[in-house]
Design a binder for these strands. Structure first.
Lengths: 338, 338
DNA sequence: TTGAAAGCGGTACCAT
DNA sequence: ATGGTACCGCTTTCAA
């Protein structure tokens, strides 16, 4: 069943059918109704491939993330997909993993599928040196980067100022009496480095010498984190820190588990469900994923409509207070053994 | 840059270029190399729309779930996407929400995009009565249903026997001494009903009368669950149950929070990260998502290769023991006030 | 308002 | 092994 069949049955030309299909105003009411009736009774669906061939678009957007099973990315993808569909686009999802080769290949495959744009979710797509693949992609379609900063033509970055958020949070921990704050992180992405800098600069601002900045890289795995934190205790079972800032909720919860209810402030980042699930509940920095993702899609539609859009948009994060840390509360500077 | 340009530059016909593109053996080594060289230097990418038009396929699979921000579905989608891509397919993701209308529309849209197959993730796609949309879809492309059972031609169901798992788990709670087990659930999907039946039948098998089966529907929201469970206490602060089975980890954690360390066995379902994050850690029924999803994609490729495949495949679930419940341990039949 | 016809860029069958 | 050519089904321009 194609446009020719419909034309024949309705007694018009294919051009007219096409006009009806595309809601062209240049069709008489009568003709339109007749054609539409035929289409309905024939159960006709236009062939998107043929249409795509003519228009060079199938209204599909490539959405990449390293791993949707990560609840943070899942949340992002969810929001993006919903917004895209509202705008009449479909999302092709690609979970690339963190290997450069795989990321490159996914982008190439997506481009070969002639997607209308590419959205990169997460700063994991910000490589240390080589952005040639992104540059190449941006030559063909607009590239949106969520939480990464790559300044290239036809590339648009939507970010959250996590540096500032961490800086402020660590600062308020320090002004609450903390002196040795453990910083836990897992990956060295762009976003990861920004957060770490926030921690370091806050420590610096409060005159905490570098030797007292306890920076610990850990695997993204609850038990490992707990283990590592437990092992950091001295012979008398004392933890060498009096506060914990973690680059992501899971790590913070690992620390909470090691602390077993001990009153040491702990803060995570992402404000995920995990934060609510832990006991005590975890205070966490909300990095405004909803805003970031919603904006991304907005920017995209504006690009498609040929508006001029900013190449970089930044949001502020905000701390969501839960049981594990209340800014303003003064913490005991004295550590008790376990 | 199209196949004609390449043909011209390489001094061959488009037929030959097409053959090179499709790795046809009927091309001389020399010609092949020449054409490939031209393609490379021209930076040529075949147009998938044209190809799709001819082959009526763009190697894309529609993957539907009600909500990827749900970590369970996110996990599923992640596994499916990875396996699909390995097979040379791309996944178009559609988060439909739970409204029938939206589900139907999503399926229609996907079909209009001429996907090669549809994968429905989760029994939320199993409606009470009307499966006409799925039937219609199955007339065009194979439909795979994960964790739902809809017996229709060209429809393939991959499920996990959650009934049995719940039956066994509740049974072992009962034989451990529990007498009044609270059952928490949120949605009445197919899978949801199966789980509930597992609970009821186990109670029945142990001679627990219906009046002592405490079945509570709750919103899928941590605080609400905790609140509701807390409110179930009598004037003396005693909980009216001595065990908790929940249809999903989040609900179980809500209960754990209400119990505040009280020694009452609690079990969830899904075996998600949440189960590890809670304190105490949550024993949970693993519903073999990895197997289900991997199998789905396998089945799909077999269908594409014209193999005969089973229409229904069922896996056993298994209980993952953590702190909140150890089968075999005898629980105190005496309840203490809070 | 309508129709005819030329693309769009491939695939695949039939000759040679 | 290679070329010619008829599709695939739609959009769009040009004429009428």
């Amino acid at each position: 069943m194609n446009i020719y069949d419909i034309a024949k049955r309705a007694g018009v030309s294919i051009a007219t059918v096409s006009r009806v299909l595309n809601h062209s105003p240049n069709v008489s009411q009568k003709t339109r109704e007749r054609v539409e009736a035929v289409m309905k009774e024939s159960n006709y669906t236009p062939n998107v491939f043929a249409r795509g061939l003519g228009l060079n678009s199938m209204k599909m957007i490539g959405v990449l993330c390293t791993d949707v099973s990560d609840i943070f990315y899942a949340q992002a993808v969810s929001i993006i997909e919903n917004n895209l569909r509202r705008e009449g686009y479909h999302a092709i999802l690609c979970c690339t993993g963190s290997e450069m080769k795989s990321k490159k290949k996914s982008i190439e495959l997506l481009l070969s599928k002639r997607v209308d744009a590419i959205i990169l979710v997460g700063s994991a797509f910000q490589e240390q040196f080589d952005h040639s693949h992104i540059e190449a992609a941006a030559k063909k379609v607009p590239v949106i980067i969520i939480n990464g900063l790559i300044e290239l033509p036809n590339t648009y970055c939507i970010l959250c100022d996590e540096y500032k958020a961490v800086f402020q949070t660590v600062s308020s921990m320090l002004s609450g009496g903390c002196r040795k704050i453990l910083y836990l992180y897992d990956t060295q992405t762009y976003s990861g480095m920004k957060k770490l800098m926030g921690y370091q600069d806050a420590c610096g601002a409060f005159g905490i010498p570098y030797e007292q900045q306890i920076i610990q890289k850990v695997p993204k795995n609850l038990e490992s984190v707990t283990q590592i934190v437990l092992e950091s205790r001295d012979e008398e079972g004392r933890f060498p820190f009096d506060g914990v800032m973690a680059s992501e909720d899971l790590l913070a919860i690992g620390a909470l588990k090691a602390l077993k209810g001990k009153k040491i402030p702990v803060v995570g980042i992402n404000n995920s469900v995990l934060a609510e699930c832990s006991t005590p509940t975890l205070s966490s920095i909300d990095n405004m994923l909803l805003s970031l993702c919603t904006t991304s899609v907005q920017i995209l539609s504006q690009i498609f409509e040929d508006y001029t859009v900013p190449q970089k948009i930044s949001y502020n994060a905000k701390l969501i207070e839960r049981e594990s840390f209340h800014p303003g509360e003064v913490n005991s500077p004295v550590l008790t053994p376990d």
